[in-house]
Design a protein around this nucleic acid. Structure first.
Lengths: 148, 148
DNA sequence: TGAATATAGTAGCAACTGCTATTATATCAT
DNA sequence: ATGATATAATAGCAGTTGCTACTATATTCA
């Protein structure tokens, strides 16, 4: 049964996404797009590479998410004056407008998800998952090759 | 910060998948395909619908995973003699051969993921995530509509 | 300065996921 | 028995994710 943790986390994360997306379908924005926007909110002007590293996805994954957000007029790419290969990312005014409602939705979903957990248990959940993430994140940085 | 749990779970699950896939690339089988096979191992002859419900994905999602596994000659669809709309799913001999190696890989990855956690903490992690999953799963079954 | 190397980002391909709509078959009610 | 409804599975469309390979630009070092 030792594979349970990985599958369990995967299932739970998927249910989270599904629930969030079901509630925000009208807005046309998904859970993961919203997440990207919240990161961007605190790092305006960041380049794609560092942002990809920050949220631990591959650059190409981020690139495509940005494509869609630009298409939806939520994010703006501006040329980096210091490096002609790079883009700097900025939120549009429209993104700012969306943030409030999304936040309320996310808060409500989170409350429902941790229903029945004490505050201490919720804290511990976060702590434990963060430790697991750190373990896996370290592995990824080692590129898996050295492990065999 | 209350959206953290959802994102945290999502990130961690993704890192899990990535790590697993990096180790099993040679075999040509992904983490999620392997998971489906382990379920099938214990429910041979099950139909697609009930299996989709069991692993809590949409029927169409399962249908496509089965498509690929059939293509890879790991799963076999047999017509249900009692219902001409339905398929019964069976593992092939080839799937059985793969299971052993995969299991070892999954076990190793799990150990690394929970490195630094005591046995009690690992148990608690599973317990807490399962409770969250149950909360979300209940929501999904209510179809989200009644919640507004 | 000019060649080798590194970095920022993207293209093609493919797997996973779900929504809405559709087809084929089964069941139920009249 | 037949018409209405329900169920099993799939088709089209789209978002997320990552691998490998590639282009364009920057940096380094010889």
């Amino acid at each position: 049964m030792s594979e349970t943790i990985g599958f369990l986390l995967n299932d739970t994360a998927r249910l989270f996404r599904r629930s969030f997306n079901a509630r925000t379908r009208d807005s046309g924005i998904t859970a993961l797009q919203w997440r990207l926007i919240t990161y961007l909110k605190r790092h305006e002007g960041i380049r794609q590479g560092p942002l990809a590293e920050l949220i631990e996805v591959e650059p190409i994954t981020l690139s495509r998410m940005v494509d869609r957000l630009v298409e939806a007029e939520l994010v703006e790419r501006r040329a980096d004056p210091a490096d002609r290969r790079a883009w700097q990312l900025y939120l549009t005014a429209r993104a700012g407008e969306l943030l409030g409602g999304m936040r309320a939705t996310a808060d409500a979903l989170t409350s429902e998800a941790i229903e029945g957990l004490t505050a201490a248990e919720a804290d511990q959940l976060i702590d434990l998952v963060e430790r697991v993430r750190a373990n896996l994140s370290r592995r990824i940085c080692q590129k898996e090759d050295e492990i065999v």
